[in-house]
Nucleic acid binder design. Structure first.
Lengths: 210, 210
DNA sequence: CCCTGTGAACCTGTTCACAGCG
DNA sequence: CGCTGTGAACAGGTTCACAGGG
């Protein structure tokens, strides 16, 4: 319950639970059991209880969990209980779509700046977010206390941008460029390879036919 | 080696291996050992060999793997050795960005149509891809023999669109709407929850500081 | 001698089952 | 009685280590 290492699958599911709890709260549902959530999310009830047990005891025997308190607890665990400043590097099609994506804001992330090297993009705004030249990365990161960055640059540029981000003090990088990044141990990286997801789907689809 | 069930993590890594092999092939590298790939991809060499063993024997003891043959083999396994027609449902910011994303084409996927309900979008093209009204989903899916769909509609609409897709004979859905979808067993679904990825990164970043 | 392919050992995440509390 | 929390049993994925082939 203290600071034992938490398996990655657990963190993945924590985000699912949070999403479900947010939906329930919106609908005005006050309490929920692990069994009900399990049905909705296609997991087992024991799994949910075990996952939560990594962080404490949040339920009441015979009742279940109170939706809003558990939601808030999960946000605290994930670190999204207070607004986090995030930047997007790369203002191509994907970068622009991510800047406009409402889901980030809804979850409490503040997109505070975008960066690119293309002259025509710099100085403009995408939605409400200003686009700066990539040279200003360190400056903006420091001034706005940015901890997380979204990387949406071409694969060839990804490593050098990642190094600039680490240098400037970023703690996590969400990488949409299909490459493995080399970063110090204290900087977390998550790769989101969109094409790979389609490939995996293709594989699953082939197998399902049997 | 025949048709035993393949663990999901194996499929995920297969896509990584393919990406690496494509990069190596572009650079003109002719052969590679599991050890070299392991270093580049941050996995173990035994892992790579075990993963490949699910599908056959592709290497030569003392030499390693021939880059292009193994690449082609992986494509065949994943089902991307021949072009696959794909549609995108939802032509909002995210849908548009995905339609323009080069990574899909580079991997052999053909984006053949987009769908939306907004009058102003219908009849136009996004990049080279025509936008149809969502009512024409079944028709286009049948005519173009579409097997895979990308879902980029608001969460509230996702389930009903998914049902239409299944009805029309789609075999796999890449779901960017943050909801769990209910689909028949023979339709594969993969959820890509962009905000959840940032949440997981936030969690990792908090932990890394310790 | 290098590197693959693979059974065996290991380990970690999942499921089970039940004690315990409201 | 319902549902949580959790130790114990289980399952399955990963790592090890070595036989075997070029």
């Amino acid at each position: 319950m203290t600071t034992q290492p938490v398996p990655e699958p657990v963190v993945r599911r924590l985000c699912q639970y949070l999403r479900e709890l947010e939906t329930l709260a919106e609908r005005g549902v006050g309490k929920v059991s692990s069994g009900q959530m399990a049905r909705d999310l296609h997991v087992t009830d024991a799994q949910i209880r075990k996952d939560l047990a990594y962080f404490g005891q949040f339920g009441r025997p015979g009742v279940g969990y109170l939706v809003e308190p558990l939601r808030d607890e999960l946000r605290r665990i994930l670190g999204t209980d207070r607004p986090l400043n995030v930047i997007v590097v790369g203002a191509g099609d994907l970068g622009r779509a991510l800047l406009r994506y409402r889901g980030f804001r809804r979850k409490g992330f503040h997109l505070v700046a975008a960066f690119d090297v293309t002259k025509s993009k710099i100085g403009r705004k995408i939605g409400t977010v200003p686009v700066y030249h990539i040279d200003r990365l360190p400056e903006v990161i420091r001034e706005q206390d940015v901890k997380l960055a979204v990387l949406a640059v071409p694969a060839e540029a990804a490593q050098s941008v990642a190094e600039a981000l680490c240098e400037a003090g970023v703690r996590g990088i969400l990488n949409f460029a299909p490459t493995t990044l080399e970063t110090p141990d204290d900087v977390a990286v998550r790769l989101v390879d969109l094409a790979a997801h389609l490939e995996q789907l293709s594989f699953q689809a082939i197998r399902a036919k049997i």
